[in-house]
Nucleic acid binder design. Structure first.
Lengths: 228, 228
DNA sequence: TATTATTTAAAATTTATGTTTGAATCATTC
DNA sequence: GAATGATTCAAACATAAATTTTAAATAATA
């Protein structure tokens, strides 16, 4: 039935496609360039994947899987470690994964968020949901029982924001080489360290507010709103 | 010398261009559609702006200026108010500006960060620098004299991340209407309130670490590194 | 060797969009 | 109210590219 030793053209295409899509986005990437970088014929994409769109989806999946494999999500922290340590592990892993120069999936995901093609919606959702669920339950653990669902949502997005946004800015700065960059993340260890300090204190503060039954006391003192 | 009452075609073009560029990005936006939405002839862009690229730049400037005008940066807080209050004001203003459905400049800027055309690098830099300077000095005030330059940089980017990223996610969720969204920011007041609580505590924690002459004590206890 | 998988080069197909132009229209000025 | 210049218009221009298909050639297995 012909399963000739895979000449890994498919693999080469996935890697080349990762590069090109990450550099130019879906629309500006050309199959010609992808095939060029993969040392493959121009027809290879259609033969192996059936078209540019299918290649795009499989490329993201491939890149994400590889990226997760390289940077295990728990950051090497035991499952039964205290939540603060587990958070530290996850953040280290996440930031490390994003800052990795070989990362493709995050870069592509950013483009997709800013200017969606719609092709990755399901793929990304299904791939990222499990990760987000874990972050969420960890956050609930740290926030304690008094925090509202909304507060948990906010803290979760605050944390992820601090992991996602700085690398984005860093990449952008590098591309516009005109500006000698102060380098947002010049020492990853120190960056994540400050990030954890900042985040744990932030979470604690929100938790303390919750314990006092304020929904984060602003100028307007609103009555408590317990989880839905 | 012919200064006929301006039929504000130019203005209409800037607004239409704002819409279209924010929806599709520079490359996928067509002057045809822009002129269409502006009820102008297809040649109008070239007549008034000299080309699509020049229109893009002027559109961003226009959108940014209008956006800043609608949401004054200090959030209505007195210049001599305590720094915590001034921070609250700035964050409210910033988030309000970004979440505003009429906002174009932020959306365009995000695309530019994720997938740069290069056309807005200077424009954006010059427009946003003054704002960032103020945030920076405010941050130094809150961090006190013991914090390193790097810590100030990190805290600044943490704060901005929490302001920038959540609205981005929210917009993305809305576009992919397939998913009934938990709505990250359903109550702006409460969101900024939690954000401020979180951020002030985070800043305080980093400041306390700095006072102890640790550069944000991670596992590795590094010697203090005072500001450059 | 028969059969299938894969690669190749070239052509087919499809689709577009920014820009220009020269005439027509409008508004102002003298 | 003619002259002048700003603005608008419809149509064509010019340039361009990029995905997909095809049919033949090659390589690899059984």
């Amino acid at each position: 039935m012909a399963h000739p030793k895979p000449p890994d053209t498919k693999e080469k295409l996935l890697n080349a496609a990762g590069e090109v899509f990450a550099e130019k986005g879906f629309r500006d990437a050309t199959v010609a360039e992808i095939c060029g970088r993969a040392d493959a014929n121009i027809a290879a994409v259609n033969y192996h994947f059936g078209g540019k769109e299918a290649l795009y989806q499989q490329t993201w999946r491939h890149a994400f899987a590889q990226s997760i494999r390289t940077h295990p999500q728990d950051g090497g922290v035991e499952r039964n470690a205290p939540p603060e340590e587990r958070l530290r592990g996850r953040v280290k892993a996440l930031v490390g994964r994003i800052v990795d120069e070989n990362n493709r999936d995050f870069v592509i995901a950013q483009m997709e968020f800013a200017n969606p093609t719609g092709l990755l919606a399901e793929v990304m959702e299904s791939a990222m949901n499990p990760l987000r669920q874990k972050t969420r339950s960890l956050m609930r653990e740290l926030l304690g029982p008094d925090a509202t669902e909304r507060q948990a949502t906010h803290c979760e997005i605050f944390l992820l924001s601090m992991c996602f946004h700085p690398p984005l800015i860093q990449r952008a700065r590098r591309r516009m080489k005109g500006i000698e960059s102060p380098a947002v993340i010049d020492d990853l260890e120190m960056f994540t360290s400050n990030l954890i300090t900042f985040a744990l204190a932030g979470i604690a503060a929100v938790r303390d507010n919750a314990r006092l039954n304020w929904d984060a006391g602003a100028g307007s003192t609103k009555a408590a709103e317990k989880a839905s």
